[in-house]
């Protein structure tokens, strides 16, 4: 999201890249116009998104296609497909755009790619069934949610070594980091909680109750509130970070999955998988705005907002 925030400060028209699992496409949503301006064919069953607003590329993980599609954000076309011997889920890109980190769910590993050449630099073991990935603000640490080992891997990106693992709740999946980088938020799907981790001590400092089967989390641009998608009950939990408590639940269309914060418009965007829409939530009033129709079974796992300079 750091990249997204930078992009929001300098670009007029950010986009959301929404992976449509059911039709193997990505919907490109112009967030100023609040409509889909392009639908791009990618690999089979796309899930994850990472946006590099510096080099104007969006990376899409195709879990069944076992590949990563690279979209040029100027032409809004796929310019490269990286075939991988893995099942990619979550992915994120370094600040400069030179490295791509991809979670390999079925081999309990993280793949580090050189984005210029598309070559795999490292294939390193982490915990079981890694899903979400998140870089620290300075890019030196990669956090990986290991769903089946109930912990978060902490990886030094310079040495590509796993430093340690932080135990969290049952089945961690989505991750996000605070705007100041001091807190990491981890969604625990089976515990119905969010773990708050101090990124200096790498200790869990709070565990916050949310709704049923939560998947993904995002902080607002001021670091005051968290928004969590509850897939099992079709709602968004809104959390006040000063009290670390849920202050409201907002009912949304079916099976909300991916979530991101549009800092420019102060809106929360949520992909509702069952109803094929991108839900738009006003971050201040917590009122729903008109939803945007996207493709079939949208997931948008990761920080899916970015723009061009």
């Amino acid at each position: 999201m750091w990249l997204s925030l930078v992009a929001h400060a300098v670009c007029a028209s950010p986009w959301a890249y929404i992976t449509n699992q059911g039709e193997h496409t990505v919907s490109v949503v112009d967030l100023a116009q609040q409509k889909v301006t392009r639908t791009i064919s990618v690999g089979k069953a796309p899930v994850g998104v990472a946006v590099d607003s510096v080099n104007h590329k969006a990376y899409i993980s195709n879990v069944e296609g076992r590949s990563v599609s690279v979209i040029d954000m100027h032409s809004q076309q796929v310019i490269q497909t990286l075939d991988l011997p893995v099942a990619p889920v979550g992915l994120t890109v370094s600040r400069s755009g030179d490295r791509l980190y991809v979670a390999d769910w079925y081999h309990d590993a993280i793949v580090i790619l050189d984005t210029a050449s598309g070559k795999v630099l490292t294939h390193m073991g982490v915990g079981k069934a890694p899903g979400g990935v998140q870089l620290s603000r300075d890019g030196t640490t990669l956090y990986v949610a290991n769903r089946d080992s109930n912990d978060v891997s902490v990886i030094d990106t310079r040495s590509a070594r796993e430093l340690h693992r932080i135990p969290v709740g049952q089945h961690p999946f989505g991750l996000n980091i605070s705007p100041d980088g001091k807190q990491l938020y981890v969604v625990n799907v089976f515990s119905n909680t969010v773990s708050v981790i101090d990124t200096v001590t790498d200790q869990v400092t709070a565990t916050i109750a949310v709704g049923d089967h939560p998947y993904c989390v995002v902080a607002d641009s001021e670091g005051k509130r968290l928004f969590v998608t509850n897939t099992g009950e079709d709602s968004i939990s809104v959390i006040d970070l000063s009290t670390q408590k849920q202050i409201q639940k907002v009912r949304v269309p079916g099976t909300p999955e991916g979530i991101a914060f549009d800092a420019q418009h102060q809106q929360v965007l949520i992909a509702s998988w069952m109803d094929n829409v991108l839900v738009v939530l006003d971050a201040r009033s917590l009122k729903l705005l008109p939803a945007i129709a996207v493709g079939a079974q949208p997931r948008a796992f990761g920080q899916f907002i970015g723009g061009t300079h």
């Binding site: 059911g22 879990v63 769910w105 089945h171 079974q297």
Partner: peptide
């Protein structure tokens, strides 16, 4: 665990 490829 929930897999990465749910069906609808």
């Amino acid at each position: 665990a929930c897999g990465p490829d749910p069906q609808r």
